[in-house]
Simulated scan of single mutants.
Amino acid sequence: MKVVIFCGGMGTRLREETEFRPKPMVPIGDRPILWHIMKLYAHYGHKEFILCLGYKGEIIKEYFRNYQWFTSDVTLRLGPRPRIKYHNQHPEEDWVVTLVDTGLHTQTGGRLKRALRFIDDDTFLCTYGDGLTDSDINASIAFHRRQKKIVTITAVRPTGRFGDLEIEGDRVVAFNEKPEKQTNYINGGFFVMDRRIEQYLTDDNCVLEREPLERLAAEGQIAAWRHDGFWQCMDTYREQQLLTQLWNSGQAPWKVWAR
């Protein structure tokens, strides 16, 4: 099943990193977060990727064009008949990556609309280039097929960023400095979609999370796959450092391909 990944935003809240590269190329350990996301999908057998490029998209193109070069030991034959010999293989050799320029200022719905021409199947996967999870992708696909809706959203309850106050009248009776989970579910950004979504996408200014998803919800066409395990976005430098610490410690929950 093909996987659409939004890679074109400017990532303004992570300006420390995105001034120099697109957000999906910000590293977690020694690899960009985009690689981690793709490894998750590949683990479940989904190795055909459509990357929706925009801001600094040429950096992502260069990364994949030179992937073999940077991940292999190499022997070069110089002179009038040059030759390159790669000495080792890597687990990503069966990936198929389509790099699509979807425009610098195009919104998420517009990017998805442009990507649909590369999808022949009735069902596909979609996500953002800045979030990680240990959710079972294939289980969410099976759930989507049972529900028979146009969209399935992975619903998550992220770790709370702020302290919870329990108040009675005007008095605080309990304070939890770092609550483990939010009470309400939010959109975790990992979707299963049917091609029928195309009729809800208008133009480049279409924001997927606004009119399309709002209309679909009103029509009862969105199912929620609840995931109470690990999920973390990378909106800020602090979150990038948190994910890097998890990776470097060998305790990254999203590293399902190594279990």
Score class of each variant (00 low, 15 high):
residue 95 W to G: 10
residue 86 Y to I: 00
residue 113 K to G: 12
residue 119 I to L: 01
residue 119 I to Y: 05
residue 91 P to S: 10
residue 116 L to F: 11
residue 125 L to K: 03
residue 118 F to R: 00
residue 82 P to W: 06
residue 84 I to S: 02
residue 106 T to C: 13
residue 97 V to E: 07
residue 124 F to D: 00
residue 113 K to D: 13
residue 83 R to K: 15
residue 94 D to S: 04
residue 119 I to V: 15
residue 87 H to D: 10
residue 103 G to Y: 11
residue 111 R to I: 01
residue 99 L to W: 11
residue 88 N to S: 15
residue 119 I to E: 02
residue 117 R to A: 08
residue 119 I to T: 07
residue 87 H to I: 01
residue 82 P to R: 14
residue 83 R to D: 08
residue 93 E to K: 11
residue 100 V to S: 05
residue 117 R to F: 01
residue 87 H to N: 12
residue 104 L to A: 07
residue 124 F to G: 00
residue 97 V to A: 07
residue 112 L to N: 13
residue 98 T to Q: 06
residue 92 E to D: 12
residue 107 Q to N: 06
residue 121 D to N: 02
residue 92 E to K: 03
residue 100 V to Y: 02
residue 96 V to S: 15
residue 93 E to N: 07
residue 84 I to F: 05
residue 91 P to T: 09
residue 104 L to P: 06
residue 111 R to D: 08
residue 82 P to C: 15
residue 86 Y to F: 14
residue 120 D to K: 10
residue 83 R to M: 07
residue 117 R to T: 14
residue 111 R to W: 12
residue 102 T to R: 03
residue 87 H to M: 12
residue 92 E to S: 04
residue 84 I to P: 01
residue 87 H to A: 01
residue 122 D to A: 12
residue 104 L to D: 06
residue 88 N to Y: 04
residue 99 L to H: 09
residue 122 D to H: 05
residue 99 L to G: 10
residue 84 I to L: 12
residue 85 K to Y: 14
residue 88 N to A: 15
residue 113 K to S: 13
residue 89 Q to W: 08
residue 96 V to F: 10
residue 116 L to M: 09
residue 119 I to W: 03
residue 109 G to K: 02
residue 87 H to L: 10
residue 92 E to W: 02
residue 95 W to H: 03
residue 102 T to W: 07
residue 94 D to A: 07
residue 95 W to M: 02
residue 94 D to E: 12
residue 96 V to D: 11
residue 82 P to H: 14
residue 114 R to G: 01
residue 87 H to Q: 06
residue 86 Y to C: 00
residue 100 V to A: 06
residue 106 T to D: 09
residue 120 D to E: 14
residue 88 N to K: 15
residue 116 L to E: 03
residue 122 D to S: 13
residue 99 L to D: 04
residue 107 Q to T: 12
residue 101 D to P: 05
residue 116 L to A: 06
residue 103 G to Q: 12
residue 89 Q to R: 14
residue 117 R to D: 14
residue 93 E to C: 08
residue 102 T to G: 14
residue 115 A to P: 10
residue 91 P to K: 05
residue 90 H to M: 09
residue 99 L to K: 08
residue 110 G to F: 14
residue 83 R to A: 14
residue 107 Q to I: 11
residue 89 Q to V: 04
residue 87 H to K: 13
residue 125 L to E: 03
residue 99 L to F: 11
residue 106 T to P: 06
residue 87 H to E: 06
residue 103 G to L: 09
residue 106 T to A: 15
residue 85 K to W: 03
residue 121 D to E: 13
residue 99 L to Y: 12
residue 118 F to I: 01
residue 102 T to Y: 11
residue 121 D to V: 00
residue 96 V to A: 09
residue 117 R to S: 11
residue 101 D to S: 03
residue 91 P to A: 02
residue 95 W to I: 10
residue 86 Y to A: 00
residue 82 P to L: 08
residue 116 L to T: 09
residue 95 W to N: 08
residue 110 G to R: 12
residue 117 R to Y: 09
residue 87 H to Y: 04
residue 91 P to R: 07
residue 114 R to P: 01
residue 124 F to Q: 00
residue 125 L to S: 05
residue 85 K to A: 04
residue 84 I to V: 15
residue 101 D to R: 06
residue 117 R to E: 14
residue 118 F to W: 00
